[in-house]
Design a protein around this nucleic acid. Structure first.
Lengths: 207, 207, 207, 207
DNA sequence: CATGAATGAGTCTTCATTCAT
DNA sequence: TATGAATGAAGACTCATTCAT
């Protein structure tokens, strides 16, 4: 009875396990170099079983990519929409979150993967634009406009190019992926410096 | 006359043609999805001929990657080392160059490719770190320090994190690759805004 | 009914079928000239299936070579170890067995293949030395020493060079492979004559 | 003038150089694994030049095989036809020659190659049968018959199976090729022992 | 549902042979 | 004659996908 307890799990759970395995392998080796068989092995199931949950290899990638963003985005939105938090603190919080939740985890590999493969998966790119970027940029724009109104931005025009806010995040992901072995990048300093470049010092802060 | 002049070209020229073909296809489809046979076809030669010039597919990529950076870097260095040009103009010039020479051309695809595949080609990553990044960052640091001394930076600490300078370039490349079809990004505005965020307005400039 | 029973056979059986196909083709054409695809076709399976059972072409050869010797060797050992059989009869029996079981069958092709390719498959050569030759020579030496003690050998020193015993077998294999179409070799006479050269006539035998 | 002395050599000499190179490489690696380009390189010429002297790779092999036997055979014939030399000495001389001229040199590789590939080159096999084996066996038969008449053979019937005489030579070639690294074979002892098995001790010889 | 043996299209790479120079 | 760049057929091996069990 304990023998075959592994079979016939909850479908949703099984699906999640497969995605987790795919995530690990895509992160490590990239899309092309990951074999379905390895994903299956890592998920502890047989090759064919993967196909019971996903029509093909691409679906594995698109599912993964789509499912990855939402949780984090929600938390970010929550923070950004809280008008009682000062804009600078919001952005600081977002950077802290990016640092610990993305750069500090395997998620950064997935983001790199998105950067790498996204172009060849229009479904994914469009999904991200619609559900992540549009939303995220709107949030940022709102926060930055609030900051501009309060006279906290060194250059108020930044509010019109909110993409600049996540440029350092992308740069850090790329650096970590490619060059960290050769030269360490201290992302906390990156974000802190950038924050101080965007925002004037708060009152009571030493320059 | 041009018909059968195909045989026995200058080796250097032939090599360049192959690289050009590989560049086009890698840019368009990525490394894994490009077949040597397609590279050959595009170069107007037979499959086997590619192997007379490059030992394998990887070599094609590494050659390409290595050969791509130097020319541009040299021009950038020249500009950055000219102390008679004010720092802000130097950075403005670099952004202009990035905009026209990278973002405005196919080279941006190659850069994306580097971001994507670099991790799996340590030779390339190390080459870039040593020959491009180290050099480029040193240049930027020098320019930024000069700016700091002259009191032109909004946040002098930026001189210690010169990577921030090219963060918007990377962001733009990624945006163009993935999201441009869905939402246009005006890179000139991106760079202009960022420049104004880094630097205080010059005298005589309107904010 | 036999039509589509092709899928999912007993792995051991499938393995044996592949080896049988490989045996036939290697025998006929040699190692280099045999294509995996042909082996598959002959076994009635797809190319890829071969690779489910053997890691590569070499493994096919080494498996084949290794698996080929034991059965016969065992029977020979049994005969040679039976001290109640007079030495001359033992050797006669071995020759009879070689004649009918090797020279008279496709196995002789395999032996030729071993002679041909063995040098390039050290694994195989060592395997044969350890498991076939060492054992076989020890047996022969024992039999010959017994014969020498009983004064049955024309030249007792032969016991010290038991390799001489199988020299005619190798010669016959080579002859059959290369020259039989041009000139028949009667192996029974070869072995009989050699036997009479090694051994003195038994009592009661006419010279 | 010394510059291009290498070009335009005597065709016969050039041909010989190519054959020598082919011999070395075929011996070392076998027929399939030897590339024409390597033969050319070893002969110090360009790939295409080989084709000015031999129509294809096979011709290289057949030429080589055909040209290899004659010189040695001639010397053997000379010895065998000298009726003043006692038969036993003739055979002893032949073994000595085989030992020093074949087993002791690279020629043994070529003989192994003949054994290996001969089957797939009927031209070669037939050539050898007609020009080497027929001749050689006739010589041996004659010598053995002379020995039989003189009552020097332990088993006079050997004269009817002269192939037995070269069986130990083949065995030694095969042993050296495959098993020498694992166990040394002393060919002098092999031949001496076999000689004493074929022939009765000469008068004045100790057994 | 789950399995994993089987499939075969797809790709890299090699190398005998040709032929313009 | 000699060269060696160019060719392209050939073959080993991979892996996404299917499907009988």
């Amino acid at each position: 009875m304990t023998e075959k307890t592994r079979r016939r799990r909850d479908p949703e759970e099984r699906r999640a396990e497969i995605l987790a395995a795919a995530f690990a392998l895509f992160s490590e080796r990239g899309f092309a170099a990951t074999r379905i068989e390895d994903v299956a092995a890592r998920a502890g199931i047989a090759k064919g079983t993967v196909y019971l949950h996903f029509p093909d290899k691409e679906a594995l990638f698109t599912s993964l990519a789509s499912g990855m963003a939402s949780p984090l985005l929600a938390r970010m939105a929550e923070m950004a929409n809280n008008d009682r938090i000062p804009p600078k603190s919001v952005i600081a919080g977002l950077y802290a979150m990016a640092d610990s939740e993305i750069l500090g985890t395997d998620r950064r590999h997935m983001l790199r993967l998105l950067i790498s493969e996204g172009q060849f998966f229009p479904v994914v790119a469009e999904f991200y634009h619609r559900n992540v970027l549009s939303v995220g940029l709107a949030l940022l724009r709102r926060v930055l406009e609030r900051a501009a109104e309060r006279g906290e931005l060194r250059n108020p025009k930044v509010a019109e190019v909110p993409q600049l806010v996540f440029a350092p995040v992308l740069m850090s992901i790329i650096w970590k992926s490619l060059f960290e072995p050769y030269e360490h990048l201290d992302t906390k300093t990156v974000f802190a410096t950038f924050l101080e470049t965007l925002f004037l010092p708060s009152e009571g802060e030493a320059s």
